[in-house]
């Protein structure tokens, strides 16, 4: 008997939790991002968003190019830094390499408002730039010939398979030394 009552109470609590969750979810779907007060109290992002891909679906890919600069200031030609891993079916189950692409994309997205904002000069002090520069330094420093003490990188945006729009160079970094 007691077990039956306990079960009913548990049922009711479970229903209440689910019902509250549905109600909170429903009232937090308004599309404008400023109506997000409850999400501020949701550190684990438990309130879902109805939009399928993301709040603002990505419309572009970002690519990083670099060139090495020797002590005389002469630069090599630009090379693409390969970040995007080739796809295979196994990645459906396990794909840690995806994080590199995601990080590069997120850093570029963080840097973009600064580059296009009113004070683009401060971009080189932004955390996104410093992370990008540190990551490239770490990747390139292992196998660069010693006569190249530094490098420069650029951020390029293109629209992937859409051939209508031209790739766009968003940013070219200043000279960065490997020794920093």
């Amino acid at each position: 008997m007691n077990r039956g009552i306990a079960g009913k109470v548990l049922d009711f609590v479970a229903c209440g939790v689910v019902a509250s969750y549905v109600a909170v979810t429903f009232w937090n779907q308004y599309p404008h991002h400023s109506f997000n007060r409850m999400r501020g109290a949701d550190p684990f992002s438990l309130i879902p968003n109805w939009r399928f891909f993301a709040p603002d679906p990505a419309g572009h890919d970002y690519h990083l190019f670099y060139r090495l600069v020797d002590q005389e200031g002469t630069a090599t030609s630009w090379h693409l830094l390969e970040i995007v891993a080739a796809r295979n079916p196994f990645q459906t189950l396990w794909f840690p390499g995806r994080r590199d692409e995601k990080a590069a994309f997120d850093l570029a997205s963080d840097l973009l408002p600064i580059i296009t904002g009113p004070m683009p000069d401060v971009a080189t002090t932004a955390p996104a730039f410093r992370l990008m520069a540190a990551s490239m330094r770490s990747r390139l420093s292992a196998d660069h010939p010693p006569r190249y003490p530094g490098f420069q990188f650029s951020l390029v945006r293109d629209s992937g398979f859409d051939q209508e729009s031209e790739p766009e160079v968003l940013f070219a970094s200043p000279f960065i030394t490997f020794g920093q």
């Binding site: 209440g16 509250s20 429903f26 009232w27």
Partner: peptide
């Protein structure tokens, strides 16, 4: 079959709207 959670969810949603 137990649809109580569905009805309760609809009720909670209406209550949420009334509070707002």
């Amino acid at each position: 079959r137990d649809d109580r959670a569905l009805h309760l969810a609809a009720f909670a949603t209406v209550i949420g709207g009334a509070i707002l």
